[in-house]
Design a protein around this nucleic acid. Structure first.
Lengths: 138, 138
DNA sequence: GTAACTGCAAAATATTTGCATCCTT
DNA sequence: AAGGATGCAAATATTTTGCAGTTAC
């Protein structure tokens, strides 16, 4: 079952405020990554731009959400999954961007195969962005 | 041997102008990916900001350079290698960002292993961003 | 000569900061 | 009550557009 926003805020020791709850709810409702403007589009009427910026920053700092790279270079954000935030060593992210529906989401179950790097390189973190067509848009 | 900027411009059927040559020379000189501000820092005195933006756009459109995703979400650019621009099917990029020196470069020789995706997903393009320590910074 | 490129000014966007007020705990 | 969060105003940064003058071919 999906966690509710109140619980998430409590878990991360964040105060429950209207804007945080609303933004979190957006992330919960949409399974895919949201850009700043996605969020603003849905919320701007209610909350100040600055609040949205600051809330995202707080969530990032606390590890509630993480950055998702878009192929165009625009940044998006997505909720961190349980393992992502609790296990220190979970330093891999696989994101899939569907070129049809335009949505980007995390593929939690996909693991990145070992990559052979040239001598002398040490890997700390790996990010994989895959583009193509998702199962819904086939 | 490294190609010279004049040759590159000719290859891509672009007019040879002072700013294009200068910006290309920057990319040739630096083996790593450059952000817009990296470029401006070195060039701004000589060329207008707008020219830099437009030149980068032209280079992107023609395939002279490609976008490099940064873990922070800031965009960088790097020269396309021969195979990158000539072979239609070269749709893979591996970039390595060293957390010590901060440079990001393309690992041309590294190929991305096949990734097993859930049923229904079709892959068109893959981007891998690896972070860690590069061979120089060990 | 002509189409393409550049620089300047200015518009449009995006992001950050300071501060007074309000709200959660 | 107190510290943290918000909203507003405004500063700063980033990117885009229009247009007139210049340049490569």
């Amino acid at each position: 079952m999906q966690k509710l926003e109140g619980q998430i805020l409590k878990d991360y020791e964040l105060r429950t405020t209207t804007s945080r709850s609303a933004i979190l709810r957006l992330f919960i409702k949409n399974a895919f990554a949201l850009s700043y403007s996605d969020i603003e589009r849905e919320i701007a009427a209610t909350f100040d731009r600055v609040t949205v910026y600051r809330t995202l920053k707080t969530f990032l700092d606390k590890g509630v959400i993480h950055k998702v790279l878009d192929d165009e270079g625009s940044l998006k954000y997505a909720l961190c999954s349980e393992p992502c935030s609790t296990h220190e060593h979970h330093h891999e992210h696989v994101h899939f961007k569907c070129s049809t529906c335009g949505h980007t989401n995390c593929l939690e179950d996909v693991t990145i195969p070992m990559v052979r790097l040239p001598k002398g390189y040490v890997v700390a973190e790996v990010n994989l962005l895959i583009q193509g067509t998702c199962n819904n848009c086939q």
